[in-house]
Design a protein around this nucleic acid. Structure first.
Lengths: 220, 220
DNA sequence: GAAATATTTTAGGTTTGTCTAAAAATAATT
DNA sequence: AATTATTTTTAGACAAACCTAAAATATTTC
């Protein structure tokens, strides 16, 4: 895999995030990256010459297959560093993004693969987004709020949106953490509380307030 | 502390390494950085305007006090990452430098201070070079080979140059590692073996072969 | 479907960091 | 001390990545 400049990588990543299977426009991308539309046009010509985007003047652009591969590698680096910062260096989960924006551009494959191993091959970053593996393969299942999980569907906790000590204390007491497998057994409309089941534990109850802050992913 | 570009940082660091209390010349620096002398002149004007070097045309340059502070911060980042790579990611000690060359330019103070804490405030990098603290203060004592250590001088092991499993096995058996405090009691000219003393242990003997690979620093 | 509006591209300029080739200053040699 | 050699600086150019202002194309509206 070739090497790209920090700027090129930022453009590729931004296109990836913007293209929800449609086409990305010059203004969208310039807004996302806080550059002027003219700069976007310049870069698109360059990325088109490198065969990373499909681009025709005045008709927007989208990543080529090669471009997507590059994007997934950058996202892999970003999310692994985010995990490292939160898990090992004890950054708050809302501080990690900005630091990872810089670290993600250090593109040494061995570094990233060894970091991955050191972290225990985590599958989700601190925001609950999936981390691509070393081949660029990424988990596609969507995360949902615990309040929206259908009954009796096994799922895995991937993110908690409030990280206050009070919240963490409560989660600790209920033995719920990132990676915990659980399913919802009953929903009570009166107070929106839930009855949940964690395997090898007795069923327990969770307030609607707490459930709102817990995000899970369906197990396969 | 202001922010400097990767290029500026590389120049500052290179000057720091070249100026063993003398003056650095244009050709020396261009050789070190693999750029042309003309590029060095350009950058020296820029660093002079930023008051990081003292520079007069045709008469070489050296870092100002501010320049030295910046250099020590960069070296701090470099050596902490080297330590991380060797200690946590299990890179060989001779592979860490090249990767740290990239990581050192991510200049987020909180990141580096938290990394330092995570690593347990290490004082030396895997090459045995001292790591400046968060104020830029650096250990000045020079490392010497165990074979050159004067008798009865207390010292601390800071580096082993051979990291083969055989070597590490032997060191483990003799209870010698980075940070071990020891002194040399006798030197035998016949086979260059040494008698050493580690506090709270019985005196033991070390072959000349082994001693050649152990580096120590005088205790204050 | 023509006019008005919005979007995108082109043309040309700036900064950073590099280069080459020529000129200037310093150092070495006879 | 004058000439030669070396080192350093200047002058001008280039690529990357950005910019502004004007021109070209698309889209919307009446």
């Amino acid at each position: 895999m070739l090497n790209y400049s920090t700027s090129e990588e930022n453009y590729i990543k931004a296109i990836f995030h913007l293209q929800k299977d449609g086409i990305v426009t010059t203004n969208e991308l310039s807004a996302e990256l806080k550059t002027k539309p003219a700069s976007v046009t310049d870069m698109m010509k360059k990325l088109r010459d490198k065969k990373l985007v499909h681009y025709q003047a005045y008709h927007g652009f989208k990543l080529s297959n090669d471009g997507k591969k590059v994007a997934l590698l950058i996202i892999r680096r970003h999310r692994l560093w985010e995990f490292f910062l939160a898990e090992k260096l004890k950054f708050n989960w809302d501080e990690v993004h900005i630091v990872a924006e810089d670290l993600e551009h250090v593109s040494n494959k061995k570094l990233i693969d060894k970091l991955d191993e050191f972290l225990g091959f985590p599958r989700f970053d601190p925001h609950g987004d999936p981390i691509p593996d070393s081949n660029g393969k990424i988990e596609t299942s969507k995360q949902v709020c615990l309040t929206e999980l259908p009954l009796n569907k096994t799922s895995t906790v991937c993110h908690v949106s409030d990280q206050s000590t009070e919240m963490l204390e409560l989660l600790g007491h209920k033995k719920i953490g990132i990676g915990t497998k659980l399913e919802v057994k009953k929903k009570f409309n009166f107070d929106h509380s839930l009855e949940i089941k964690i395997r090898q534990q007795a069923p327990s109850n969770i307030s609607g307030e707490l459930a709102k802050n817990i995000y899970v992913r369906y197990d396969d």
